[in-house]
Amino acid sequence: MAILEVKGIKKSFGSTNVLKGIDFSLEKGEVIAIIGSSGSGKTTLLRCLNFLEFADEGTISVNGEVLYDGVAESSAKKKLKNDDKRLRKQRLHFGLVFQNFNLFPHKSVMGNLMLAPVLQAKSELSFMERWRFEKSDAYAAIREKALATLKRVGLIEKKDSYPCELSGGQQQRVAIARALVMNPDILCFDEPTSALDPELTGEVLKVIRELKDSSTTMIVVTHEMEFARDVADKVIYMADGVIEEAGTPEEVFGSPKSERTKAFLASRKNAAAIQEDKPE
């Protein structure tokens, strides 16, 4: 059974139809790369999966459970948008790593990793227990987990630093670790290297590769064609709010069927040629 099943997602902002019916599915441990020029709707798709936007139509199912049904939603008494409790629970199926990291600047690296899990654990406790929470086993467990995750992204020595003291690449690795400690079923990346200097993208892509090796299910919206080819099990090329072409990397990059895909890949190749110093 597919871990994620997306069917007929449509989304419009005012009169602009950004997504015109998106279908795809994802198996556990698989990595999907979504490519496409800007404005093709790939970021909106990712935001719909994380419920930062709400699709007008279509369904999103995780592990066979329907999390979201756009049609049912439009007639529902209490919309997901306004149901904070349900919304939070459903969002936790997904993790999201942003283009500009969005770390909490006032928290140390460990603080960034531990804030959400600690608050989540505390919210189930009584007032007095909250007071003593930092001495509890549950707190120690969260801390252990955060340290282990930080080790995974290779930043254990930066655990007490603040985001402003880190390079862009390091910040993005912290952001990945922050998403990982919440144990999402599916980890989403929204152009994780776009805000980075070229020489810093390598370290972030390396971390994503390592996540694949440990069977993390991922959706990566990216401009890094070579990376998509290397890492992804499936590649989706989006244009104008529809999936123009989908398949294995060999199929999409090696023998694209659609003319638009060909044109897009050609333009990216030229861009890559100009930008000689690709990492790795």
Binding site: N50, F51, L52, D84, R88, K89, R91, L92, F94, G95, L96, F98, N100, N102, L103, F104, L115, A116, L119, Q120, S123, R178, A179, M182
Partner: peptide, 19 residues
């Protein structure tokens, strides 16, 4: 982005505001 980061981490509106 700060609000969205909190949202995807499953934080409540109150937690987001105060923390």
């Amino acid at each position: 982005g700060q609000y969205e980061a909190c949202a995807v981490l499953g934080m409540t509106k109150g937690q987001t505001f105060f923390h």
